[in-house]
């Protein structure tokens, strides 16, 4: 990343007060905040603890283009008190930020000439930085399979339409509940895997979405012959400290905020199969 970037020297437990640069509504219950970052270095797949003043902090992935070093981009779905409080912020407002935290997506190494990204719902958010990078690597054949509930829930549709015109990028969209104008696929993301051009020896697969979707997607990819070491998933657990101190995010021996949220499938598969976890 550019040399102008710097590592945070700030106490990671003390939130920084940052300025919101813009608010954009993406869908009826999803919005994007651009927040001044102070040029702090980050990796695709990492997250920040974000909180409106007077409200609890919540973990939110960084969704922007890594080339934009001056801002954090966070795309958030309104599900409860804290995410709703963030939805009231507008340009010029202050927001509390800690981070970035966690282990992000692996760098796509030279031996991988194919990148397969499978995402569902807001699970596309943490994968966006990787997709921005992939869009600038013409030699990397990238396929995005993205599932949403309905056409009006599809995130970043303009960006996805632009990428689908790139020679190295294929974008396959699918929804559960189509309307009459929907011209893409219907059904779960797993349905599109057997008919996607996958070379199991050169493909690295990144998955993010509801845990059930990730489990079934990973199994489908294994059936296609992809090694579990070349499959990565991003796990979601409740988080509080974000840095391995409180145990809120613990998944057996793993502190998801510290050793995750992104894991190679061979490391996490066993834990994903245990219903109690």
């Amino acid at each position: 990343m550019a040399t102008a970037l710097k590592l945070s020297t700030h106490d990671p437990m003390t939130p920084r007060i940052c300025e919101v640069r813009s608010f954009r509504r993406e869908t009826v219950d999803v919005f994007t905040l651009e927040i001044e970052s102070g040029g702090i270095d980050w990796q695709p797949g990492q997250f920040n603890m974000v909180g409106a003043i007077g409200s609890r902090e919540i973990p939110i992935s960084i969704s922007g283009d890594p080339a934009r070093t001056d801002i954090w981009t966070h795309t958030i779905r309104e599900v409860g008190n804290c995410s709703r409080a963030l939805a009231h912020l507008r340009a010029g407002d202050s927001v509390l930020m800690r981070g970035p935290f966690g282990v992000g997506w692996p760098e796509v190494e030279a031996e991988h000439s194919d990148l397969l990204v499978v995402s569902g719902g807001v699970g596309l958010v943490p994968l966006m930085p990787t997709l921005y990078l992939a869009s600038r690597r013409p030699a990397l054949k990238t396929t995005l399979i993205y599932g949403s509930r309905s056409p009006c829930d599809v995130l970043f549709s303009h960006r996805l339409a632009e990428w689908s015109s790139y020679p190295n990028m294929t974008v396959r969209l699918t929804v559960d509940h189509p309307d009459t104008d929907w011209h893409h696929n219907v059904g779960l993301v797993t349905r599109l895997i057997p008919t996607s051009p996958i070379n199991p020896f050169t493909t690295i697969a990144l998955i993010c979405g509801p845990e059930v979707m990730m489990r079934f997607t990973a199994r489908e990819l294994l059936r296609e012959g992809i090694s579990p070491r070349s499959i990565y998933v991003s796990m979601e657990r409740n988080m509080k400290c974000g840095m391995g101190l409180c145990g809120h995010c613990q998944l057996r021996g793993e502190f998801v905020c510290l050793s995750g949220p992104v894991y190679p499938y061979d490391r996490i598969a066993r834990l994903m199969e245990i219903p109690e976890l």
Partner: peptide
């Protein structure tokens, strides 16, 4: 098997209720 699995998972409304 693939179609049935996909249909059953669709019933979960995975993206509606995370």
């Amino acid at each position: 098997q693939n179609r049935l699995q996909s249909t059953i998972l669709q019933l979960l409304d995975l993206y509606g209720d995370r």
